[in-house]
């Protein structure tokens, strides 16, 4: 085998090896992306725990009379802005509901206690300030309204 052929063989094998890695990465990522997107903003039922009203009061925030939409945001979070808009709209439209937005980074103890892992995370609190449902990622308006109906129901 000549030196040139050796080089060619190496180049071909290298590209082919890279090709399989590339296809693998793209396939795994595409599957992960579909899973990620379907989970985005989906409301999950939560077992009723302690009331968060003292926590809110401590932070200088008043809870809503009937329900509170508690949003955790951070600086490097693109969908936090859209989430803020949607939750504020819902709070304005539904009487007795208040939207409270907290900066996750400056409230790390609350974040740990409530096991908030990413931003935005939205918690739907009932009139007693207990978490009824939660959603990680940008929630859809109809899901928030459905969760509120349950929380105040």
């Amino acid at each position: 085998m000549s030196c040139q052929e050796g080089w060619k063989g190496w180049a071909v094998a290298s590209v082919q090896g890279g090709m399989w890695v590339l296809l693998g990465v793209l396939t795994v990522t595409a599957v992960a992306g579909v899973v990620w997107r379907t989970r985005q903003g989906r409301m999950r039922l939560v077992e009723l725990g302690e009331t968060l009203i003292p926590t809110l009061t401590e932070l200088g925030e008043a809870p809503g009379e009937r329900a509170t939409l508690l949003q955790f945001s951070s600086a490097f979070c693109a969908p936090c802005r859209a989430t803020r808009r949607i939750l504020a709209e819902v709070a304005a439209a539904v009487p007795g509901v208040r939207h409270v937005e907290l900066d996750a980074e400056s409230n790390l103890d609350v974040v740990r206690r409530l096991n908030i892992l990413k931003t935005p995370t939205t918690l739907v609190l009932d009139a007693q300030g207990r978490v009824t449902q939660r959603a990680a990622g940008q929630p859809r308006k109809e899901h928030i309204l459905a969760a509120l109906a349950k929380a105040v129901g």
Partner: peptide
């Protein structure tokens, strides 16, 4: 940033 920034801070 949404997925890892808060985790890193925590």
């Amino acid at each position: 940033g949404c997925e890892i920034y808060l985790l890193a801070k925590r």
